[in-house]
Simulated assay, not measured.
Amino acid sequence: MPPRSDGAAPAALPPPEEGDAADAADAAASFRPVRRRLIAIAYRMLGSMADAEDVVQDAFLRWHRTDRAAVAEPTAYLARVVTRLCLDHLKSARVKREIYVGPWLPEPLVEAPDAEAEDISLVLMLALERLSPLERAAFLLHDVFGLSFTEIAGTLGREETACRQLAARARRHVREARPRFPVEPDEGLRIADAFLEASRLGDAEGLRRLLAAEAVFYSDGGGKRPAALNPVFGRARIERLFLGLARKAGFVRPQVVHRGLVSGLPGFVTMESDGVPQATALRIEAGRIVGIYIVRNPDKLGRLPVGPSDRAGLN
């Protein structure tokens, strides 16, 4: 507080009223049970856990100011609030992604934002990214979180019939993106281990055995770390890429700091030679790798098991 012009000490702020503290405690108590569910909605909408948490915090502030006694279904009400906030956010996020350097991938997660959520896989996230924001919202609210189309119509400001059509179009895209022959977890990890070894050794024959002919490689450096500026399509090109990287750097066995699911897919997190982690997720079908997704942008890696702030503990 700035000093008063007459030189006198500024008056102390009055303590919060007991009613205000009680109201804040009541708002927090009623919000807490649904917070993880709201985070799950926002993460699916935005692809960033940091942005999701900001949106949910904003939703809490609005919940605090709301006449909560008049809200019949708090979970549905808050889901609508979060969705609207996400749609507003996406208007600016879309502009940012249009000027993003190289491919954009969602922030990688090694555990689900919501234990009740069935699917936060990278495959779903990328399918959602190809939808319009309204299609994404209609699909998530109805198919994933169970809101009625009447509620969704009120949230999106569209007719109920239009919301049904939005969800149906989104559902088709998501269905087409789902793996046709999903890999068993243990087999997926075995393939991920073999890929890590072959790619770092520059083992051409090993890569050839692991990669499907139509495989595609994406790397997200965000312009902040070296990464391919465009997707790499086809087994032969991906093989040449990794052979070139292995020859350039020489084989250095990276420290694996997480082995398991990365954004719902088999993968691993490694600490790289520059002291910053890297997240790799593999889409595997019929025993072959059809998609390689590597996130190197340090802005997206702070929530991994070992983030940039933990580097000192690895020396």
Score class of each variant (00 low, 15 high):
143 D>S: 13
97 R>F: 05
275 G>A: 07
268 F>C: 05
137 A>W: 00
113 P>R: 00
247 R>W: 01
43 Y>I: 00
267 G>L: 01
68 R>G: 06
271 M>V: 14
47 G>Y: 00
159 E>C: 02
308 P>T: 12
55 V>M: 02
304 L>E: 01
249 A>W: 10
201 L>I: 02
88 D>C: 13
143 D>M: 10
184 E>H: 09
91 K>I: 13
289 I>F: 01
139 F>N: 02
30 S>T: 15
160 E>G: 14
307 G>H: 06
120 I>W: 00
180 R>E: 07
100 Y>K: 10
190 R>K: 14
2 P>F: 09
201 L>H: 06
193 D>I: 15
99 I>Y: 13
96 K>I: 07
264 G>Y: 01
61 L>G: 13
18 E>F: 01
270 T>I: 12
66 T>F: 04
160 E>D: 14
180 R>N: 06
197 E>K: 10
311 R>V: 14
161 T>V: 11
83 T>C: 03
124 L>T: 06
187 E>Q: 14
122 L>Y: 04
250 G>D: 02
85 L>M: 05
106 P>K: 01
205 E>Q: 10
65 R>I: 12
190 R>W: 05
229 L>V: 15
26 D>A: 14
148 S>I: 06
89 H>G: 03
29 A>R: 15
276 V>L: 15
265 L>P: 05
179 P>G: 12
113 P>Q: 00
270 T>W: 01
151 E>Y: 10
310 D>L: 12
33 P>K: 09
85 L>Q: 02
210 L>A: 03
182 P>H: 14
92 S>F: 15
116 E>F: 05
310 D>S: 14
157 G>E: 08
173 H>M: 13
31 F>L: 07
33 P>I: 10
113 P>H: 00
251 F>H: 11
87 L>K: 02
11 A>G: 11
220 D>M: 09
243 L>F: 10
25 A>F: 03
220 D>Y: 06
194 A>R: 15
82 V>P: 00
42 A>G: 04
229 L>G: 15
216 V>R: 15
132 S>F: 06
15 P>M: 14
272 E>Q: 10
287 G>V: 04
37 R>N: 03
306 V>N: 03
159 E>P: 07
92 S>A: 12
10 P>Y: 13
28 A>I: 01
141 L>W: 03
290 V>F: 05
37 R>V: 03
8 A>H: 04
164 R>H: 13
67 D>F: 06
176 E>C: 07
290 V>S: 11
70 A>D: 04
104 W>T: 03
25 A>L: 08
288 R>A: 09
66 T>K: 14
248 K>P: 04
268 F>W: 06
8 A>V: 04
205 E>T: 09
61 L>C: 11
266 P>A: 04
141 L>G: 03
19 G>S: 10
175 R>G: 07
65 R>A: 13
6 D>V: 05
269 V>N: 05
177 A>H: 08
1 M>C: 08
288 R>L: 07
125 M>F: 04
239 E>P: 00
117 A>P: 01
273 S>K: 14
135 E>I: 05
255 Q>G: 06
229 L>R: 15
116 E>D: 13
157 G>F: 11
166 L>P: 06
93 A>L: 11
10 P>R: 15
54 D>L: 09
130 R>M: 09
98 E>S: 13
265 L>W: 03
305 P>G: 07
247 R>C: 06
131 L>C: 09
31 F>I: 08
45 M>L: 02
22 A>I: 02
220 D>A: 05
4 R>W: 12
265 L>Y: 02
